[in-house]
Write a protein that binds this DNA or RNA. Structure first.
Lengths: 134, 134
DNA sequence: GTGGTATTGATAATTATTCTCCATAGATAA
DNA sequence: TTATCTATGGAGAATAATTATCAATACCAC
């Protein structure tokens, strides 16, 4: 993971390593502010701007996926490959929708019908999650 | 369309009618600023806040669909039912991806596998459109 | 170690969207 | 038609996430 960064002329710093670790370990989908709070425990002088800059680098690297929600992006570092996200309107939880087939099928269909070269996708389903239904 | 509004206790005004007409007629997917410019031709004193307020009402009514792009929402008034949007990274065009099957299949799969009640969806595919490939 | 350069932190700037508040216009009933 | 009640409109301020600026610092190849 760090070789990928260095190949692009980027440097591996303690901040970036820590952010990568948090993204890889944490189960959730934090936003910039939440990452900021977590990193401040280890690096009390870290700036919010640094979070955004680091996330930008990691996004370009494909190591982190941005879930572009309305005026509040969240980030997925566990599974940076394209997959749907299920967002609960009640508890706000973001559930990873891997295990969903048809994705390749949809991609292929769009490619053929519209002659559109897909580079990335953002599939968000809003609704009510299992826990909030009871 | 206007009865729908009135049922909810909303009033049909000349501004709203004009905005509905523009949304229904125009082929594109304008954002708030673009709608503001178009409406200013007819109503020079209209405010940008009015655009946002009207769009909010129409969204709640289901007459307009919000394409929630990064810090710049665009709106779809032609086909307010859920369908994918193909966004070209080169020319910025937004293409309607109706005619795409598998959507119901994906919805059903998510419903079953995750026991998730889908209320709305936002399916964005980023890439290169047909025109920009040549 | 040293030097060149990417990164950092503090803060200002930007930008889309929302809020506030009062004036006005639309609907309803007499 | 007129009076009245309430939703809507306009102007500008306020909000909040994100980005830009820039001097100081830390990383890494040599």
């Amino acid at each position: 993971m760090l070789t990928k960064l260095q190949d692009r002329g980027s440097r591996m710093t303690s901040h970036r390593l820590a952010l990568l670790r948090i993204m890889a370990v944490s189960e959730g989908h934090p936003n910039a502010a939440q990452l900021y709070e977590k990193l401040r425990e280890q690096f009390p002088t870290i700036s919010l701007a640094t979070i955004y800059k680091t996330l930008l680098v990691l996004k370009e690297d494909g190591q982190v996926f941005e879930i572009d929600m309305h005026n509040d992006s969240h980030y997925d570092g566990n599974k940076p490959y394209p997959h749907p996200h299920l967002i609960c309107n009640k508890c706000g939880d973001i559930i990873d929708g891997d295990d969903v087939s048809f994705l390749d099928a949809i991609g292929q269909e769009i490619q053929e019908k519209y002659n559109f070269q897909i580079a990335q996708s953002q599939l968000l389903f809003y609704g009510v999650c299992q826990n909030c239904q009871s």
